[in-house]
Amino acid sequence: MQRRILHDSPPDDVPVRANLVFDDFYTQQYSRLVGLAYALTGNRMVAEDMVHDAFTEAHRRWSEVTGYDYPEAWIRRVLVNKCHSRGRRLMSEARMITKVRARRVEPEADIRLPDRSSAVWEAVRALPKRQAQAITLHYWEDLTIAQIATILEVGEESVKTHLKRGRAKLSEIMPERGTLDG
């Protein structure tokens, strides 16, 4: 099945909300999704744009989305896919705009992480796509292996492999970050 996510049973800790209201869903999910998109793109403006795209898609097919057992998984799948494909294109365009117009993101408008964490997320983004997605969903969203497998439409063993390889790769490219004191 190519669209297994739409019909899976929800994880035990996710209640089914047949009367889910879009505005509530938007408000509840917004900041978490921006964080997810930021982790995957490294740019707040692009992240917010990707999130807006994802919510627009949800809004347009809301009656269908509310029929899903797990709308939260659906929109995360939409978002991580957008971040991988269109996000990279937008990042390129954002750099072009910056170059052409010497455009500067106001400091208060950007997400400012400690250097250590900023470098970690940058390294995550440099991982192969699936590894980066699995790492981000696991650590940023605190999702279980099963939940990540549902979102990414891969097997649980595959998720475990992506996580293991991702962490190993991070340790290779950031050996000095191997401990919290590093």
């Binding site: 997400i111 992480l113 964490s117 340790s171 970050r177």
Partner: peptide, 17 residues
């Protein structure tokens, strides 16, 4: 060890978002 590093990075991002 990187597990802790990633959790810490996620926490920093959480504070911002």
């Amino acid at each position: 060890d990187f597990d802790d590093v990633l959790r810490s990075a996620a926490q920093d991002l959480r504070v911002e978002t």
